[in-house]
């Protein structure tokens, strides 16, 4: 696997593909017609659900009113974007989104791999299954429930404050939700708690795909547990790791909506609000769909940028990549 993933390996594969390229003939088309019909269906699906809605981006250049619709609203050029980029609170939301997105990406990514490897090292199936089930169950809770748990746990009469006071670290309750600097860690923690078990599943699957003979061979060579992890498990799931990292990089700007929305309050709003909430507050609830669309476009463009850069980096270092 890792051999194919190297840069020279990739070039070799590409050359082979080029040599193998066939002429497109009617016979070939007829032979593959089922496949082609399926492909066309998905192209249609993609067009309708991914490309057609992009027509709505026109709104960003209009002063859109629901009354006049997309075709009757007045065009205002880039003025919505100008308004947006001149709004200081918008840049705060960009910073928050990136900040929380990156923290979430890094922590959840590392924790999931570590957790998967640890779980893989548990040899008896019973406890392993139990731990795995318990760990991914929070994934099925909705954010509103998770928020409720967080609010209760961190409130002035919640368990965290109680414990800290009993131990003597605090002499009066500490209000966690009033600290701008604590908001990002709280969000990261909630994400970890909810998603680590779930995210680990895919790595566990990748680990299962590693040839057991490799481990046996390593054992015969006298490799310990740590060395097996370092030299077999990690390289074995490297391509999975890279692909997931790339895909998740595109999601950095989807740093979250529900959690931040439900936890925010006036005192820390400068550090808690994400782009999505900004779109809701200024776009939907102020009836300014144009402004909301402009912010949405900005977000998409940045996301595409991040993916392209990450992909290019992967390419340069000769790793697996998306395109």
């Amino acid at each position: 696997m890792s051999r194919l993933g190297s840069a020279s390996g990739y070039r070799r594969r590409k050359r082979q593909q080029e040599n193998m390229r066939k002429e497109i003939t009617w016979k070939e088309i007829k032979y593959q017609k089922t496949l082609i019909i399926w492909a066309i269906l998905f192209v249609i699906y993609g067009f309708i659900f991914y490309y057609l809605p992009l027509g709505g981006w026109l709104m960003a250049f209009q002063n859109y009113k629901a009354k006049t619709g997309l075709f009757g609203s007045e065009f205002v050029g880039l003025s919505k974007f100008k308004w947006l980029f001149n709004d200081e609170s918008f840049w705060n939301t960009v910073r928050n989104t990136l900040g929380m997105g990156i923290i979430n990406l890094v922590t959840s990514f590392i924790m999931a791999i570590v957790f998967a490897i640890l779980l893989n090292e548990v040899k008896s199936t019973g406890p392993k299954k139990v731990v795995q089930t318990i760990s991914y169950l929070p994934h099925f809770l909705s954010w509103i429930v998770v928020t409720g748990i967080l609010q209760d746990a961190l409130s002035s009469t919640g368990i965290i404050n109680e414990v800290l006071m009993k131990v003597g670290i605090l002499d009066q309750p500490f209000n966690f939700f009033l600290q701008p600097k604590l908001f990002w860690p709280i969000v990261a923690f909630a994400n970890l708690w909810k998603e680590t078990g779930w995210n680990a599943i895919i790595y566990l699957a990748a680990i299962t795909a590693i040839d057991p003979e490799l481990y046996e061979a390593a054992e015969i060579d006298g490799a310990g547990r740590w060395q097996k992890i370092k030299n077999i498990t990690l390289p074995g799931i490297k391509s999975t790791i890279m692909i997931l990292l790339l895909m998740n990089a595109g999601n950095v700007l989807n740093a979250g909506f529900e959690l931040q929305y439900l936890l925010e309050n006036g005192a820390i709003v400068d550090w808690s609000r994400t782009i999505d909430i900004y779109v809701l507050k200024w776009g939907v609830s102020q009836n300014d769909f144009s402004l909301g669309t402009a912010a949405g476009i900005f977000k998409s463009v940045v996301s595409i940028g991040i993916i392209v850069v990450a992909n290019e980096l992967a390419k340069r270092t000769g790793e697996e990549r998306l395109f």
């Binding site: 309050n265 006036g266 709003v269 102020q286 009836n287 300014d288 402004l291």
Partner: peptide, 27 residues
Amino acid sequence: MNTSTPGGTAWQKMGECKHKYLPQIVM
């Protein structure tokens, strides 16, 4: 009022500003 007028935009921003600062000045 909503953001279609300068006054409405100001009204919205004043609201956000007060939401943020009023608890802070009390504390």
